[in-house]
């Protein structure tokens, strides 16, 4: 009990003093659809980064992806990167590439079959959307998808890419 108390007090006080430039949660490597290991942070370099967590069995995720593709096409040249993180386990992973290819999504896809990257944002549910500014600071996070969420996301992107 004393140990737990000490740890909690320690964490809270450190949190009070702490300041971090950028989000170190992005310091992680994930594999792309070709099996190449890529650093997530590189996608944030000089760009506003939108990260969307999804899976092939998640119906609201698939609805959101169409809107994200449109946002990506619209603002790609103005400094937006949309990074799609797939959360399918190995059991349904073989369907990811065929789904992406047939829907002609062009934004980069990384695979997180163990959910490790999702856990870094202390979340386990999807769809889950995050937006980081060019400094790597988390500006927006949203769990779930409702029709119209993409309009809120677009407003934030417009503010950040100015």
């Amino acid at each position: 009990m004393r140990k737990i108390l000490s740890i909690l007090v320690f964490i809270l006080l450190v949190f009070t003093f702490s300041y971090a430039a950028g989000n170190p949660a992005l310091n992680m490597r994930l594999k792309d659809l070709k099996g190449k290991s890529l650093s997530v942070k590189k996608f944030n370099k000089d760009n506003v980064l939108l990260i969307s967590f999804w899976a092939t069995w998640c119906s609201p995720c698939k609805k959101e992806m169409l809107h994200l593709q449109k946002l990506y096409e619209k603002y790609q040249d103005k400094g937006l990167t949309v990074l799609s993180i797939n959360e399918d386990s190995q059991r349904s992973m073989s369907k990811v590439k065929s789904y992406i290819k047939s829907h002609k999504y062009t934004f980069p896809i990384l695979l997180d079959p163990e959910g490790s990257f999702l856990k870094r944002f202390t979340n386990e549910a999807i769809p889950f959307t995050l937006i980081f500014n060019k400094k790597g600071e988390k500006i927006y996070s949203h769990l779930g998808y409702m029709p119209g969420d993409e309009k809120e996301i677009e407003k934030i992107i417009l503010k950040l890419i100015k």
Binding site: S6, F10, V14, F17, S18, A20, N23, R120, F121, T122
Partner: peptide, 22 residues
């Protein structure tokens, strides 16, 4: 001990420590 550790750690590392939770 916890307070001493906190003060030391906070002084040395605070600029680089990042926390998040749920």
């Amino acid at each position: 001990f916890a307070f001493v550790a906190i003060l030391l750690c906070s002084t040395i590392f605070a600029q680089d420590i990042y926390l998040s939770g749920s």
